[in-house]
Write a protein that binds this DNA or RNA. Sequence first.
RNA 1: GCUCCUAUCGUCUAGCCCGGUCUAGGACACCGCCUUUUCACGGCGGUAACAGGGGUUCGAAUCCCCUUGGGAGUACCA
Length: 478
Amino acid sequence: MTVRTRFAPSPTGYLHIGGARTAMYSYLYAKAHAGEFVLRIEDTDLERSKREYEEAQIADLKWCGIDWSEGPDCPGEFGPYRQSERTEIYQKYAEQFITEGKAYYCFLSQDELEALSEKAKSEDKSPHAYHDKYRQMDPAEAKAKVAGGAENVIRFKNPRKPYSLKDQVRGKVSWGPDMVGDFVIIRSNGQPVYNFCCVVDDWKMAISHVFRGEEHLNNTLRQLMIYEALGATPPEFGHCSLLVGEDRQKLSKRHGATSVVQYIEQGYLPSAMMNYLCLLGWSHPEEKDIFDINQLGKIFDSARFTKSGAFYDIKKLQHFNGQHLRLLAPEELLNKANQQLSSNDNWNQQDDQWKKTCLELLLEKVNLLSELPEHLEVIFNQSFNLGEAENEALAWESTPQIKAYLSSEIQKLVGSGVKSASAEDFSGWMNHIKKELGIKGKPLFMGMRVVLTGQCHGPDLKVLIPLTPLEVLGKRLA
RNA sequence: GCUCCUAUCGUCUAGCCCGGUCUAGGACACCGCCUUUUCACGGCGGUAACAGGGGUUCGAAUCCCCUUGGGAGUACCA
């Protein structure tokens, strides 16, 4: 049997990092088993679903490096891949359930429903205890009522018996007979409800393995009932641990940046993002931490999922990003940096050789590409705030000599029409200061640094100075 | 309330299924040292955990029970 997994987002917002993670797990699992991965859009909530969100989520998924062989944008033999385009299918099975006595029409109004829930609650019963008022109604009578135009929903007739499941991550999970009531499968507007269409789709699309967040664990009970009513064999389920915030609650917008777009904008690398997310709820058999998820291959199997919720730690993500950044090939790094710095004139005016040298110099200082502009300041900044350490270095008696010498040297170079100093120029200056002025050690290095950059620390001077325009150097000395 | 899930350093986790090799390993963060005549990168080292209580056993992080904590679900959302 071919392994077929799927990711089934609702287009009601941007792709969430938790969604990206389960999508990745499903994708990796399919890849590990030479299977197929499909994308299905769950847009049965007409009010909240938007086509623009569907497009955005597809773009975000692609950015993550996740690819599918079937989906709304590349239909296969199991289509259509949008639930809003599959209503007749759901309708058909709902009607089948009615004729088989596995579901029934319910005419409870919203108000009645609320009153019934209140009543159940006050009697210390489950809220759904009285939602089955029409369960025993004569089917012919109900049908006539529907034909007469009475507003109705279709409720599934709970078999009221225990169910259990062998979950790929949780092991055996079981439920007692009255955890849920007779739940709605078709709304009064004719639209099917999640638990129903999810099952018919997973079944009709021949999905073999379902990986999703733990918040769906209890839904699985309802879904198991529907599989049974359909006479279908349920897929394997794997309910992954939740991503949580600092308060240990399910990650949501109030915890900060939770959409993958936000990380795209902040200049994170997809490889780092996926690597980090992958390790939040799964562990590498060889305890590797930095890796390319696409090289995982057969290593990715469901046995290594973690059961408890994982705190989403941006600090650690940043570390992963830094690691992946330093692993990038120079060409690739240049491309990414060009994207990140597309509006930075100082950067755009330079040639590729300059940029590459510069990146090599600055890379060790950043975890994020978006930190590059501030580090570029050490090259282009013309005014600066002197701190305590800088003032101290400027007050050394040797520093004014260095400053005077360097000023005249730079003046000379400018006069000769050169735009920047060469590495030879720089070592020449250093030798002169050492030999002719007799300054060495800390006063030499720190003196040159503070006079040329206005700071006591920063990147390697002998690489930095040739990158810096003489014009800037001149202004700083003045 | 009810149902389900869950519990190893501050955080992510390895180990648990198949008890002894665990004076519990790695990573982030933090601290120190080395490297760098600066900062960072890198290297080395340090602080730091088996929720509690009962069993079972010669022996338990590992098996069983209870307690406590945390989370999720309880919709005509997904």
